[in-house]
Computed example of a mutant assay.
Amino acid sequence: MQKRVLIIDTMHESLLPMLEKAGFAPDYLPQITRAEILDIVGHYQVMIVRSKTPIDAELLGKATQLEVLARAGAGTDQVDMAALQACNIALINAPEGNRDAVGEHAMGMLLALMNKLLQADAQVRQKIWQREANRGYELMGKTVGIIGYGHMGQSFAKRLSGFGCRVLAYDKYKSGFSDTYATEASLEQLWAEAEVLSLHVPLTAATRGWINTDFFNRFAHPIWFVNTARGEIVPLASLREALQSGKLRGACLDVLEQEKLDKLTPAQAVDFEWLTQQPNVIFSPHVAGWTYESYERINRVLVDKLVQLTA
């Protein structure tokens, strides 16, 4: 019997033919509401999600036939892992699908920041020609610290190799992972030696608010900071304080503590407004892994994993 697949988020058009070719029976319902999901999820063996709704005990309690939850992307912070395990439902995700996109985006943001490209572009458009004010820094030879050496961290390290960087990587959950692109290091070594820091860790109870003012103050050198992971790991207030103190030379922020900008708390709104006025802060709207290529590649990764898991 064909396994039924409920798809509740917008996906690349290639997904349905891939699933059908693999022998699944997909229902593509990207406009579905949470109430409607709760009504029908009990009829499906597989559910594919992005971030439409929390996958919590309430929803999983209705998913009486669900065997596999597939996350189209890398992050699983919206999934109640304990409830998922209690229901004996397998979880798959697709970090292999957007790791190249994240590595390239992080590199692009860092180069733009260090070379003041956004500031220079804005000035030239206003017929302001200031060469000295836009003198940049070279990435070549810098010591780059990476926190989290999974798919995303490895992708960024690989791209840094072309710039002659010394890459130090810390990963709480791995050991013995030094490779061609990075050397395993402790947090203490990163604090002592890094000139650039890039985050590639998931959002968990342990990492929420982890990279705070105290963390930044431990660095021996002022650093350039890149976050393409999750915004809730780094409070906006801590970013502001570290930039004001000079601990951060600048920041590349693809993610924010609160990405629904109309729901910022009063304190967050003040900090965000201050950050937007700084020429050494670059933003993008959580799109590091969101390229045309990764949009389709994620589908291939998920379907391949589904086939292997349900064979």
Rank of each mutant, 00 (worst) to 15 (best):
I128M: 05
L187M: 15
G141M: 08
I146R: 01
M140Q: 12
A133F: 04
G153R: 01
L190H: 11
Q189I: 03
L168I: 13
Y137I: 03
E184P: 13
A182N: 05
R159M: 02
C165W: 11
L190A: 08
L190W: 10
I128P: 02
G148D: 06
Y173T: 14
Q189W: 06
G176P: 12
G176V: 08
R125Y: 05
S161F: 09
Q154D: 11
T180I: 12
K127N: 14
I128L: 06
E188D: 15
Y181H: 15
R131S: 08
F177Y: 15
I128A: 12
Q154V: 00
S178M: 04
E132M: 08
G145Q: 06
Q126I: 00
S178Q: 10
I146P: 10
W129S: 05
V124S: 08
G145C: 03
G150F: 03
R159V: 06
T183H: 10
T180Q: 11
L190F: 11
Y173E: 09
C165D: 06
Q154C: 05
L187N: 13
S175F: 04
V144H: 09
D171P: 09
Y137K: 06
S178V: 04
T183S: 15
N134T: 14
M152N: 13
G148M: 04
R166H: 15
I147D: 01
C165G: 06
A157T: 03
A185G: 04
